[in-house]
Structure formats: C-alpha cells, structure tokens
C-alpha cells in the first residue's frame, strides 16, 4: 500500500513540451507511472515520447480520465496551471516549479481546496510510491518498495535519508517532498494522518528544517494521533537568523523557527531526533 499515488494513478504532465517537463515525463513513464497525457497550449495533437499532448487540461482529463497532474511550467504561469488542473477535476496536483510568488500560491491553494482537490508543492521534488508510481523529479533508482513513509521539506536531503534507509533494507511505502516555500499544499499534519491510516506503512520519517512552526505542530499531532514509530531529522542548526537558506521558507524570523525549538518539540513528545541522517534507520528500528 501507499498514500496519494499508486499503480492506478493516471497522470497528466502540464508543460510536457518544455525541457524539464519532457525530460521528466520520459523518466516517469520509464519508471512505470501511468503517464496518460500532457498539456502545452498550441501543441495539442502532437506526441511527446509517445504521450499524447492536449491544448487544455479539460480536454486532457476528458480524453484520458486522468486524476493526477504534475506541473513543470515556468513560475509566472504556475498559478494558472494549478487552477486549470483543479478546474478540470484533477484530484492531486503536484507543482514542481520553483520561484512561484507566494500570493499566487495563496490564491491557487484556496481555489484548489474549494474544488476538493489536494496540492503538493510548489518548489518540491514531488512524490514516489516505489514500485508503483513516480510523480515528480525524484531519482527513482535509490528508492525501494517497503513500508516506511517519508515526509520532507527538502530534495537532496530526502534522497540522503532514503539512501540510508534503502541501504539498511528499509524500503518506502511513499516518500513525499512537500516543498521548500513558505506556503505550500499538503504538509506534515495531513501526511502524518495519511501514513497513520495506511496499512502499508509501519514507520514514518519526518525531515524538517528551520522556518515556521509546522514541525512544532507536527510534534503535537504525533503525540495525540500517531501510533507508528516516527524518527526526525531537522536541518539548519547553524543557520544565522534572518538569512534565507536556499529554500524561500527556510529562514529564522525574529528569533522563531529555529532548529533548536523544533528538536526540543519532538524530544518533548518522545520522538527521537537524529543528529545525522545516517542515524535514522537505527532510530526507527529501535522503536519497532
């Protein structure tokens, strides 16, 4: 089992004729993801690596019965792409695009929720249910089918952790990169709930970083609602206040959002926090 995506997910790639969209559409298809179509206004009727291209999302959904989309369009057009997907009836919208203005995300998110759909990202690597479906840009070869759920605000740090899990024989049910921006779609609380309810997941890794207080709220949620073992890693203990550390959302503002506060919040509810990524498999095994 897995969360959000599996063998039955039917994916449209928005911006499939762009460089990144085209490259990753082929990667996803090669992995076995059910890539049923792509969109690119004005290029409807063409094929991209054998995948049919449509002018509009509405047409794409009508022709393919797609339920999931992944967005690779440039930042100025990302809001429109997210809203177009929701309007066409897509249930899960994954926005990879980096640098989307925050207020665009606020507006698109509000619309997506009113349509009853879910958003992941923007500025995220997407998600993977190993052996079933890959939606996004994660390097599939480091993942292995299994039962550990992974939630992360980061890209390569996630891969580092997953690599350690896989090397230790711990495969993954689903790994989700929620995105590094201040405002993004699905976050810790919703994903923890999904993993808690997923019979195919028996442990959870949460990878956080400085900025905001979502980790603190996740710690409270784990205390009250999560029975499965959770291990945590928090990046940015050495980050100076007021500086954005790569991700737009990774910033300590007015002394809050520090790694120390987040680590303390997890430790206070008995969730082990790894000092380095390689400790995570042992922390999870220790709790089983």
């Amino acid at each position: 089992m897995s969360i959000l995506i599996d063998k039955n997910s039917r994916l449209i790639v928005q911006g499939i004729t762009g460089r990144d969209g085209g490259f990753h559409a082929s990667k996803m298809k090669a992995y076995g993801t059910n890539v049923v179509g792509g969109t690119s206004p004005g290029k409807g009727g063409e094929l991209a690596d054998g995948i049919p291209v449509f002018n509009t999302m509405r047409e794409a959904v009508k022709e393919t019965a797609a339920d999931t989309s992944v967005i690779f369009v440039p930042a100025p057009f990302a809001k429109d792409a997210m809203m177009e997907a929701a309007d066409a009836g897509i249930r899960l919208i994954v926005c990879i695009t980096e640098g989307v203005p925050t207020l665009d995300v606020v507006e698109a998110y509000s619309y997506i929720r009113r349509k009853g759909a879910n958003l992941i990202g923007p500025n995220c690597p997407g998600l993977i249910s190993p052996g079933k479906s890959l939606v996004g840009i994660m390097p599939s070869m480091i993942f292995k089918e299994g039962s550990t759920g992974v939630i992360s605000r980061s890209g390569t740090l996630t891969y580092e952790v997953v690599y350690n899990l896989t090397e230790n024989g711990m495969g993954q049910s689903t790994a989700v990169g929620v995105g590094g921006d201040p405002v993004v779609g699905l976050y810790y609380r919703e994903l923890l709930e999904m993993f808690e309810n997923d019979p195919g997941t028996d442990s959870i890794v949460l990878i956080g970083e400085i900025g905001g207080d979502a980790e603190e709220r996740a710690a409270e949620y784990i205390r009250d609602h999560v029975t499965k073992p959770v291990a945590v890693f928090i990046a940015g203990q050495q980050a100076p206040p007021g500086k954005q550390m790569g991700h737009a959302g990774a910033i300590i503002s007015s002394g809050s959002g520090t790694a120390a506060e987040k680590i303390a919040a997890f430790e206070a509810v008995g969730v082990p926090v790894a000092k380095e990524p390689s400790q995570i498999p042992a922390l999870l095994k220790g709790k089983r």
Binding site: T156, E160, E209, A235, G236, Q238, M245, G246, H247, A259
Partner: peptide, 15 residues
C-alpha cells in the same frame, strides 16, 4: 547540491 543537504552539512561540521 540541495538546500536541505547543505544545511545538514554545515550542522555536521559544527557537530
């Protein structure tokens, strides 16, 4: 390569 891994790297140096 990557912001999260870059933060983790500087944390480990300090560690």
């Amino acid at each position: 390569n990557g912001a999260g891994l870059a933060m983790a790297t500087m944390d480990m140096i300090k560690l």
